[in-house]
Design a binder for these strands. Structure first.
Lengths: 335, 335
DNA sequence: CTGAAAGCGCTTACAG
DNA sequence: CTGAAAGCGCTTACAG
């Protein structure tokens, strides 16, 4: 099954390839109505579809961007990706999404693979551990936007949550309700990257502002597998926390699972606030109070910023951080 | 920033482009150790990365497949996509995932777009409404695999759940627990495509086998937005159902939301079984009994089948349906 | 208003 | 063991 090419169309329509190309690119300026019709007919009769690979090679643009998410299993990643796709779609760009699984080696492989595929730009949730690679892209003026995280001393534009504020919202809500023994749990700490760090700092600061003493035992950054064990230990403390902030949807899930298994009542035995507004939060029993990130807005901004960089070739030094504000979704999981 | 090309490497290493190409493709057979080293050094000094677009054009293969899911918001789609990606990754193939949103127009656009991008094959969750297009691909011997659904009279290989069995598992479980007023709710009926149809037929058959009369009022195929209303009406029937099968994760979510809002207890007031083992099923209160699809196996099979077709060019007439068996996950939502 | 020609960055027979 | 040349399917100045 030999696919039909532009040459076939040209032959059939009795014109040159150039003319067919002009037609396809809607440059009708100097084209007679007659040839237009002939080309049109030839195309539809042959069922011709242009070969985008060939076009890309010539034009040095694939109209495709790559996005490398840290971990596709997080709700956050999925929602942001959707927003990115929506924006790109509107601009006639395509999106290839890759999942680095929080692994710097995979991240590197994907960045190289996507660049080899000539994507016009990259949105990455950086692991933080490929500093040389990030730098190289920046040096080459390659269109790049970071999302969710920034990397110290790497001056790439990055779209981030106001992480301190997010934690402050949670702490405030707990305090207002009369709770002071507030724990926070996140998944293991990557210090090459900002947000987890910011969340813990934000936590300490929020407590201090309210004259609550910081208890280091209430701060846990652990591997996912040992969340249940860590919870158990924390709740067995002589003065256990009465409420807990789940640093992401994964931690939240583990807390809920643990509570169910141990027959802990939420919020009677333990109040919970999750960062990230998981899809089931509103109809869980009890419904879960969360701090929502404006995922759609963040994805949209990232895509728009990247497309802009791609278009006006010279990447401005708008290397700032774009911070987005979180929202507290008050529901039933706080006593 | 001019990207470095094969010609630059050749010049630097003082060899021809052919030799560089041989080197890249690991055809060292007749290459002296010396040139090998020279090429290697030139590549690393220049930081050369081959342009895959150019290679694809020449080789007429992009080592990329497309997958068009019906609706990315279903857990099923996400999980299957992951499995597909895993398999492809192992075979050095890439994956582009598109979301047709159950819209035949979008589906068509994506199929054409992906083919224009020269993907080597396609896995599609067909809407069923682009029959001509499906036929055309088959006629052209274009590598194609359907997933989740088959389309009547379109003899493409398709990977499917044993839908009748799935419903039978649910009905049986309800009946064993002593329930006979069993309702089923799915999202609106697309009759161009098999599974929803099969689920309703399977339901009827399962009831008949157990000598339970089929009550048409208990069978609802509705648009997502009117699920709450429909539930309300159904439960207001003179003899309302005492249990319900949620045809997919979306319906399940609406049922749970409705129950919470109306203070219905599950399973006391209404027993529920969901088709698709949603991530929160095991830790919801109450935990939800579901019928799980072997999503990973199904995705794996689809990918393997497609890659095989891509490799041995001639597509066998293995146009059969591959059926996968569901599993009942017994939990707390059935009385 | 339309066509001939060059070129995008590779790969691949083929010659030597 | 290595290189010159053709060609993948397009686009784009340029000439006429």
């Amino acid at each position: 099954m030999k696919p039909v090419t532009m040459a076939d169309v040209a032959r059939k329509a009795q014109v040159s390839k150039s003319t067919v190309s002009q037609y396809l690119n809607k440059r009708y300026d100097y084209m007679s109505e007659q040839t237009k019709v002939r080309v049109e007919e030839a195309i539809s009769e042959l069922g011709y579809q242009p070969n985008i690979v060939a076009r890309s090679l010539k034009q040095k643009s694939t109209k495709t961007i790559g996005v490398i998410v840290a971990n596709i299993l997080h709700t956050f990643s999925t929602e942001v990706s959707r927003a990115i796709e929506d924006v790109c779609h509107g601009e006639d760009f395509h999106t290839i999404i890759c999942n680095a699984d929080d692994d710097p080696v995979k991240e590197k492989r994907y960045i190289e693979m996507l660049r080899a595929k000539q994507v016009d730009g990259l949105i990455v949730f950086p692991t933080g551990d490929n500093r040389d690679l990030y730098k190289k892209m920046l040096d080459e003026q390659y269109p790049l936007v970071f999302l969710d995280r920034s990397v110290p001393d790497i001056p790439a534009s990055s779209i981030m949550l106001n992480n301190e504020k997010a934690i402050e919202l949670a702490v405030d809500h707990f305090v207002q309700k009369g709770n002071e023994r507030i724990a926070i749990m996140t998944t293991s700490f990557i210090d090459k990257v900002t947000p987890r760090y910011e969340r813990v700092e934000g936590y300490k600061k929020a407590l201090r502002n309210r004259n609550i003493e910081v208890n280091e035992e209430y701060i846990q950054c652990v591997d996912p597998e040992i969340i249940p064990l860590t919870l158990k230990q924390m709740l067995a403390l002589s003065t256990p926390p009465d409420c807990i902030i789940a640093g992401n949807d994964f931690v939240l899930k583990e807390i809920l699972r643990f509570s169910k298994q141990e027959s802990l009542s939420i919020p009677e035995d333990l109040s919970v606030i999750g960062i990230d507004d998981v899809p089931y939060a509103s109809f869980y029993n009890p419904s879960i109070t969360t701090v929502a990130q404006p995922t759609f807005k963040m994805g949209k901004m990232a895509a728009e910023l990247l497309l802009e960089k791609i278009k006006k070739k010279q990447v401005q030094d708008d290397l700032s951080e774009y911070r987005f504000e979180p929202t507290l979704m008050v529901r039933e999981s706080v006593n």
